[in-house]
Design a protein around this nucleic acid. Sequence first.
DNA 1: ACGCGGATTCGACATCCGTCGAGTTTGACA
DNA 2: TGTCAAACTCGACGGATGTCGAATCCGCGT
Lengths: 99, 99
Amino acid sequence: MAVQRVDAPTAMNLSVAFKALGDPVRLQLMSMIASAEGGEICVCDLTPAFEVSSSTISHHLKTLREAGLVDAERRASWVYYRPRPALMRQLSTLLSPDA
Amino acid sequence: MAVQRVDAPTAMNLSVAFKALGDPVRLQLMSMIASAEGGEICVCDLTPAFEVSSSTISHHLKTLREAGLVDAERRASWVYYRPRPALMRQLSTLLSPDA
DNA sequence: ACGCGGATTCGACATCCGTCGAGTTTGACA
DNA sequence: TGTCAAACTCGACGGATGTCGAATCCGCGT
């Protein structure tokens, strides 16, 4: 029950994603992105929701991007972030009791 | 779709658990504990599965314990670890697409 | 061409984190 | 009581991480 066996290389890979979610700001960013109306959200809507500087938000978004959890697309002056469900589903399955 | 909204205090709490899984050794420990025969596993069976020292394993197990992901019980000379499914299920649900 | 606002990158800094070896605790058993 | 093995704690060290402000990049509109 719960959590399938994971070998060392797999643990190495997946831990990057978990680590990315292991910061309060990033977890909240992820939740805002994943629950966004229309499947995406503008950075300009993310930044004002936090107390930290916009450069810090950018830095966190980069971490989520490099972890494979989100995708970014520039349109005009704005950048929109979108969730990447594949990896999220993989993490979810790993933690689910029936796995 | 995917990931319910999370407010700041909740993010603060849950990020501790994700951070705990955000290390390769701890993720593998978690997987071994959660998939253990009989629902528990001895530290003496965990330690030799890794290249790091036993004090490091102890340190990681403490992190998992303090994150609420596992429980420990001493019996005679040995300490047995058991998963705490409640929190794991919460994390899994948070990442599942239907949430 | 210029300036502007949104977003990222860069450089710096303080703090946190993973690791080790040494020392300590715990319980079993002679 | 003394010793042994299992597990944890402690102190220290180097590298990673979160944060900021300044500088830079990128499109747009004038």
